[in-house]
Design a protein around this nucleic acid. Structure first.
Lengths: 146, 146
DNA sequence: ATGACTGCAAACTCTTTGCACAACA
DNA sequence: TGTTGTGCAAAGAGTTTGCAGTCAT
């Protein structure tokens, strides 16, 4: 399989560096995360991948997501309510999570996460990532609630 | 059972306001969260409570924690790795989470979470809580890793 | 050719649910 | 005394593990 985009090339490069195999599943799962609306659950990744690669299994999705996280191509985001999604935007940033519909969106302009890294470092902690989550009601859900 | 401290009085007051019953389990679980090292898992709460009230069950712990959260006396904190802890400090604040030992600590001085609330509000989102998590290695674990 | 990766099925953990007994108000 | 809350046991969801066959290198 040839890389058909920068996205693929980045993954293939990282896999080759580590002497790991370039499999269709890895390519397709990575594409799904980069091209679709990000913030996908494992189930959503499977559904998206299954269109292209029927027969792909959930354990493979999980193990591939874990691998992609190790390669620094994906981040695991805990929404706090137990829901876990995977995000191909890897730099520290902020999310809003709707308590009613569960929607997860990026919150732009919050410099907080990056600042927090240096604050944490000042306490003797060795930070490698930070994430800010804001809970509440999204603009679609807020009007219909008391 | 009489309130023996401000902590108890606050819980009892909130329960009475809602016409809910004041039970030993609720008192003891609330005390555990307020007096012990905070950031306890449900299992840790049960262990702590069992010393005082043997026979207390895990389902009761969960349902009580859910109630305390509704009453605004406790916050559920998702560490992102799947671990969930409960925190009796309820205002928005930041945590550090050690990837090696799992230790969770407060990160003081990060004004980020509060700022994020107003940023989110500006986008049409109706925020009610924010939480910042910094992952990395704590000062105890950092030295022994490459 | 050979060793890593995938798919299937089952196990595992954590949390929630249903029902009968106990206890708060 | 009448409900509400608790405890027990079992169910449920999501994720992980083990093993045999397949496929990338």
């Amino acid at each position: 399989m040839f890389p058909t985009s920068d996205t693929d090339a980045r993954l293939v490069g990282k896999l080759r560096d580590r002497r790991l195999r370039v499999t269709p599943q890895r390519i397709v799962i990575h594409r799904a995360l980069c091209s679709q609306a990000r913030h996908m659950t494992a189930e959503q990744v499977l559904a998206s991948v299954s269109d292209v690669l029927p027969g792909t299994s959930l354990p493979t999705v999980y193990s591939t997501l874990e691998l992609l996280e190790e390669l620094g191509l994906v981040r695991r985001v805990g929404a706090g309510n137990g829901a876990v999604v995977f995000d191909s935007r890897v730099e520290p940033h902020a999310h809003t999570v709707c308590r009613r519909c569960g929607a997860i969106a990026d919150l732009e302009g919050a410099s907080a996460p990056k600042n927090a890294l240096s604050m944490a470092a000042a306490t003797g902690f060795a930070p490698d990532h930070a994430q800010l989550v804001v809970w509440g009601l999204c603009s679609a859900c807020a009007p219909r609630t008391g």
